[in-house]
Amino acid sequence: MCLGIPAQVKTISNEAAKLGIVEIAGVRREINLACVCKDAQSPTELVGCWVLVHVGFAMALIDEAEAELTLTLLNELGELQAETQGARL
């Protein structure tokens, strides 16, 4: 359900309407950033951030640290697996 694609905010195209251009590996589109702008925050602060895009809206900010953490965890799991495999041989 609900295609959601990570993209990086490149520029703000309309500050008042909270519109910005995001890019995913050579594909750009204008999307609405309202859902990831907290009230007083100016959308320009989002430039460089990664967001999750669904139907032309950024629906969430992607948390880089959490992404790293998940990957580290996955790698550790993998190493652990390799060790137990080694131990069994």
Binding site: L52, A60, I62, E64, A67, L69, T70
Partner: peptide, 9 residues
């Protein structure tokens, strides 16, 4: 966790 927070958006 990279996308979802406890209380959403």
């Amino acid at each position: 966790t990279r996308v979802v927070r406890d209380h959403g958006n």
